[in-house]
Simulated assay, not measured.
Amino acid sequence: MDNKLTIRDVRTEDAERLVEIYAHYVQNTAVSFEYEVPTVEEFANRIQKISAKYPYVVCLDQDKVIGYAYAGRYSPREAYNWTVTTSIYIDKDHHRKGAGTLLYAALEEKLRERGIVNLLAGIAYVEEEDEYLTHDSVYFHQKMGYAQVARMMTVGKKYDRWYDLLWLQKKL
């Protein structure tokens, strides 16, 4: 891990940089099932809405944001109040430098403080990797202690191809 990397809470003014990071995944991969890159304003609204209730952190290399992670509500039903979904995106040029591990460690610490017990990650999946989707996210989450608990077959279509959705879970 690079000791230059630091973690801090997201700020609304990070929206433009976060859109730059996320745009790669929307436009070039099946990692995100969104077809259109959100506007900076829309992303700023997402940041405000999510961070009002759940942790949302960014990773910086020097002063540049290179990744982000956040938790979100799994279900509005009260019985699920101890379960969240997690999401993480790293700048395409900063993979395998430790940012993801640092982001998830910070996110998990904040979630523990809030009494969260279950983390769920929905991950696009295809049996054989293609030019739009690798198994990197699955491997990363497994490395972080997540285990597969469900596989929904052919639920997302992007680039005229069908993708599965894996649900991985981690107990804090």
Rank of each mutant, 00 (worst) to 15 (best):
I88V: 14
F43H: 08
N45M: 09
A106F: 09
D164N: 07
K157V: 12
T134D: 08
L120K: 13
K4I: 08
Y132D: 04
H135R: 13
V65A: 05
L120H: 11
H24G: 03
K143A: 15
C59N: 03
D130Y: 01
S32T: 04
V37D: 03
G122F: 12
Q27E: 15
Y56W: 10
C59V: 10
E108C: 11
V31W: 00
R11L: 15
P55K: 05
L103G: 06
A147F: 11
P55L: 08
A105N: 14
D93F: 09
L107P: 02
Q169K: 14
G98V: 07
N28D: 13
V149C: 10
Q169E: 14
K49I: 12
S75V: 01
M1R: 09
T101G: 14
M144N: 10
T154K: 05
T12M: 13
N45W: 05
E109D: 14
S51K: 11
I7T: 08
W162R: 01
E13A: 13
E78C: 03
A147T: 15
G115C: 04
R73D: 07
N45C: 05
I90C: 07
S137G: 12
V155F: 00
R8I: 07
R114L: 15
K158V: 05
V26R: 00
A15L: 05
L133D: 03
K97S: 08
M1C: 03
V58A: 03
L18F: 02
S32D: 01
R112S: 11
Q48T: 14
R151Q: 11
I21C: 03
W82I: 08
M152H: 07
R8L: 10
K64I: 08
E113P: 04
T86S: 10
K53H: 13
F43L: 03
H141D: 12
M152T: 04
I90A: 08
G145D: 09
V40F: 09
E41W: 00
